[in-house]
Design a protein around this nucleic acid. Structure first.
Lengths: 335, 335
DNA sequence: CTTTAGCACTTCAAGTCTCCGAGTGCCAAA
DNA sequence: TTTGGCACTCGGAGACTTGAAGTGCTAAAG
């Protein structure tokens, strides 16, 4: 990726974010004076395509960014000198918080209005459920079942796949270790350090331990009876790429499935406060959201009220603006 | 409307509710043995059409029910011997009500699942706001402004249109009467009797008083910070008649506008508990919902928690089933 | 007066065809 | 390495055809 390719990729992405239509080589020459001809741009575009950053909807159309193109843009090309507009979102009605749910709802509505995308807020009610015990059960050569029993008596199970075979004895040993360390722990007590400790004791398969920890945290997270608020669904209709009922349907199906939806926050479960997480397309890990981007962060909404907040929109999204919006939530709290 | 016309109307509606496609004269002969030929059915259909109960999407297609056809069906033709299936909805998790919002949400999800339509629940937090004072201001010959000041200091105004001219003096007089009776009243205290009293004192324009009362109740209702829960939006995609993005958009826009949405419960504001209100198409009074039917009722969800619950779906709806569903909410509470 | 058979008529929906514009890929020359 | 030029491809819009479904109407039968 030389500088000119980056310039062209950036131009394509900016143009496509703005116009939602495939970008032609000619458009780039006309609007982003690079002092080369459209043929040169076409050559570079072909190169960018073979790198996977852009793609063609069909053979004789312009290019649109691929997911990895947006990823490259977010990681390396985005204008970081964005002006930190002051959005004083958390200040609304703070005098008037009789009801946390309504307060969060107002924040969501406001943020949906400011961003023009859909906003999701979860309030975490922490530590209500704990691990009662768990068990690993071998299934086939390369599969096992993780069975979790929670202190609320709920049972959850997940299928694990291994890269290489693991013996029954190994599974038994890992089950014992996990039980020893995890029984009676709530979501806050299942830390990165604890995970590391177990990996040290059971070094033969760290990836498996990672996976199990993720699922355990997930299970507790879901069971904590989080309040999920979704606002700004109607904004989806502003985007011409969602002009088919099928696409709207899969979006709304995902939004209405609370169990699935909270998974958009998976990555930021253990993240530092104030960090902004960006997941593009399949990175989100939900089938219905493969054309979307989620920008999310942890947020301390007010004393004692903590949760996560995410902006979700098409991958063709105004990244800078939304990141600024979420950052501004923190600026206020730091004061 | 002789008995045969009613039979045919009923057949058309049942058939259309089931199949979502225009019903032909032949279909009726085949499936609803009336012992007449299709030509006779066609004659009757033409009559039913000129009565306004059914219509044709285009000339040369079968008939579909018109809004007033559904109305006739609901009022006179519906099978009232419907078996009162026992849906023990309110029993879910009653032991576990830590959080009213989540309890209502669960009810909504359950009911949305059972009905296959969209469910709306509002919890009323009663009597929080009152009328501080109000004023009628003449605008043009046939218009005036109703200005409401609430005890929460919020100001709301509405334009009133008269059929015939009303003098400034009259407006002043009515303003004084209304203030005398309404100041410091909350939503529960603004009753039908109070309205009647004012109409008796100010008999020259009862319609105007009616209109003002409606707006006052509305304003207080909106301000009572009701918690609105919507579940089962995704069910809309099951109905072939909503195969255009435009239609979905207007539905979702309405659902997301809480101020508008609560107006679907307008009719049952003062209604007896347990009565079921059915509004079809334009009867709902919301532009975005002219292809929908709302079936709604007051509901005492549990001790002290009162609210309204509505099922909303296409006019082509399984009326009997949904009425039964809502009725079953009461059966449980009476026990 | 009511019902019915029969037929002409209308409309939609799906399929086919053509045509045009936009845009690319690639070659050969600069 | 860049560029002008040209052949090629594809999608979308529009025109046209065709077949199926269903009606309205008329004239005859009950």
């Amino acid at each position: 990726m030389d500088s000119r390719k980056e310039q062209i990729l950036k131009a394509i992405i900016k143009e496509y974010i703005f116009g939602a239509e495939p970008v032609s080589s000619k458009t780039i020459v006309n609007r982003y004076g690079l002092n080369v001809s459209s043929a040169t741009i076409r050559n570079e575009m072909a190169a960018l395509e073979s790198l996977g950053y852009i793609k063609q909807p069909h053979i004789s159309s312009g290019r649109i960014p691929a997911a990895s193109g947006y990823r490259y843009y977010v990681d390396f090309l985005m204008d970081n000198d964005r002006i930190a507009d002051e959005y004083n979102i958390l200040d609304i009605n703070t005098s008037n918080i009789k009801n946390i749910h309504n307060y969060l709802k107002e924040i969501a509505i406001l943020l949906a209005g400011l961003s023009n995308y859909t906003v999701i807020i979860t309030e975490e009610k922490q530590g209500e459920d704990k691990i009662h015990h768990l068990k690993l059960v071998g299934l086939l050569e390369d599969k096992a079942l993780l069975v979790l029993v929670l202190s609320s008596q709920k049972v959850k199970d997940y299928v694990l796949s291994f890269l290489e075979r693991i013996s029954e004895d190994e599974l038994k040993k890992l089950t014992d270790i996990l039980n020893y360390y995890l029984i009676d722990k709530n979501i806050d007590e299942i830390t990165q350090e604890l995970k590391q400790e177990i990996i040290n004791i059971f070094p033969s398969n760290p990836l498996l331990v990672e996976e199990i920890f993720k699922l355990v945290v997930n299970a507790l997270y879901e069971e904590n009876n989080v309040d999920v608020i979704v606002e700004g669904v109607k904004n989806i209709f502003k985007f011409p790429e969602f002009n088919e009922v099928k696409k709207i349907e899969s979006f709304i199906n995902t939004l209405e499935d609370q169990g699935q939806l909270t998974r958009i926050f998976d990555n930021i479960l253990g993240q530092e406060k104030g960090e902004i997480d960006i997941k593009i397309g399949d990175e989100i890990g939900l089938e219905g959201l493969s054309d979307f981007t989620v920008i999310a962060t942890n947020c301390l909404f007010c004393d004692g009220i903590q949760g996560k907040i995410g902006i979700i929109g098409p991958t063709r999204m105004f990244y800078e603006k939304n990141i600024t919006l979420l950052e501004s939530l923190f600026k206020q709290k730091e004061e």
